[in-house]
Design a protein around this nucleic acid. Structure first.
Length: 378
DNA sequence: AAGACGGGGCT
DNA sequence: AGCCCAGTCTT
């Protein structure tokens, strides 16, 4: 392992030139973002939750919607979990929404509605880890805490030509130490924002714009022509495959059974239609599930075409089954935490996850629904 | 220390 | 199809 103890780290004057060049670039090139326009910590707090593992362009519409719906931390703290989740639907990593609301509650109830000014206390809030704690305290309160996110990792590994695997704890520790040494005491918040903005706009993952980079003259990877190989990441775990039936229980009045998933794990706290795990073979020959269905004494299901949904770590193949039932009808499950019989239009107001939203907009489902005549009953 | 956890954009 | 993320929590 080779960390250049280069002048950037031990020469005050050169480090200051580096900081000045970066900050100057930031002032001239930073994007106009709603949480930068606001001067309060609440906007930063909300945006940092949204921006965890999420790009600015993806988070932007969600920020606008949420800041309007919950203008203050008190409003957010008193929001219902289901309502917040409905706003969050489609953004992913749904535990963030639950943690965001819990954190707001703690801030209101334990910290009198003010963000804790201490790194350790900030870290104790649900959903706030080392990155978010440092980001909020440095950006909103100008505390000298370095941030290390994907952008900073990219900028630092390139500037210092660090070729080790960035998934390794040891490499990450090394990057954190460098980030701490580069941080100016006067303007840590702007410096952190500048590092991340540079990573997003110039020091991009692929085809970075080195010619227009304000740090080019300090960048070792640029000098050695290794930019495209850095940062190095060991290959991720292969994608899992998941096969399931989706059970659309339809009552005679046209209502559908919806269920809420547990607060941990995949699609935390999101609503869906009950699912039944199966194998790739069974998914194409729904005969074997007849035994399961006979328990509910339902007529033969209407089998819709197989569908596909890709998560970052799971490849899901699923097939909706339409099952007509008479109420009262009891669905038992140890897995789901809540259930509701809802009309189709009420379901669209639910925090339904994407894979199952796709079922409702699927043409085959729409055709069937039309034929049943539920539309005409109302 | 390693897995689990979404979705959109880009190549 | 594969890779990139403005990370945190659980085990």
């Amino acid at each position: 392992m080779f960390v250049p103890m280069n002048k950037l780290l031990n020469n005050d004057q050169i480090r200051q030139e580096f900081q000045k060049a970066l900050l100057q670039w930031f002032e001239n090139n930073k994007r106009t973002l709603p949480w930068r326009e606001r001067k309060d910590w609440y906007g930063v707090f909300l945006s940092e939750f949204l921006l965890q593992q999420t790009q600015v362009t993806q988070a932007l519409p969600y920020f606008q919607k949420l800041i309007r719906t919950y203008p203050t931390v008190e409003a957010l703290a008193s929001a219902s979990e289901d309502e917040l989740l409905r706003h969050w639907a489609g953004l992913g990593y749904y535990s963030r929404a639950r943690n965001l609301r819990k954190a707001a509650k703690v801030i209101v109830e334990r910290f009198s509605g003010r963000f804790p000014q201490n790194y350790t206390e900030a870290l104790s809030l649900p959903g706030i880890g080392p990155y978010t704690a440092s980001a909020i305290l440095s950006i909103a309160f100008n505390q000298p805490l370095p941030v290390v996110d994907g952008n900073v990792i990219r900028v630092i590994t390139r500037v210092f030509n660090i070729e080790e695997d960035v998934r390794q704890t040891k490499t990450q520790k090394q990057i954190r130490e460098i980030a701490a040494q580069l941080l100016p005491n006067q303007t840590p918040g702007r410096f952190n924002e500048a590092m991340m903005e540079l990573g997003a706009l110039t020091c991009q993952p692929t085809s970075p714009l080195c010619e227009q980079c304000p740090l080019q003259k300090w960048c070792l990877a640029n000098r050695q022509g290794s930019v495209s190989k850095i940062p190095f990441k060991s290959p991720p775990a292969p994608k899992k495959r998941l096969y399931q039936f989706v059970l659309l229980f339809v009552a005679t009045d046209g209502r559908l059974l919806t269920v809420k998933r547990p607060r941990n794990g995949l699609l935390a706290s999101m609503w869906e239609f009950p699912t039944l795990e199966t194998t790739p073979e069974e998914l194409n020959t729904p005969e074997p599930i007849r035994e399961f269905l006979s328990r509910y004494q339902t007529a033969a299901p209407i089998v819709l075409p197989q569908m596909k949904h890709i998560y970052s770590h799971i490849s899901l193949r699923y097939r909706p089954l339409l099952l007509s039932v008479n109420l009262p009808f009891e669905f038992h499950s140890r897995f789901y935490v809540q259930q509701k019989w809802l009309q189709l239009e009420s379901i669209s107001l639910l925090a339904l996850h994407n894979a199952h939203k796709k079922i409702l907009t699927d043409t085959k489902f729409a055709e069937w629904w039309q034929r049943k005549g539920f539309e005409n009953k109302r």
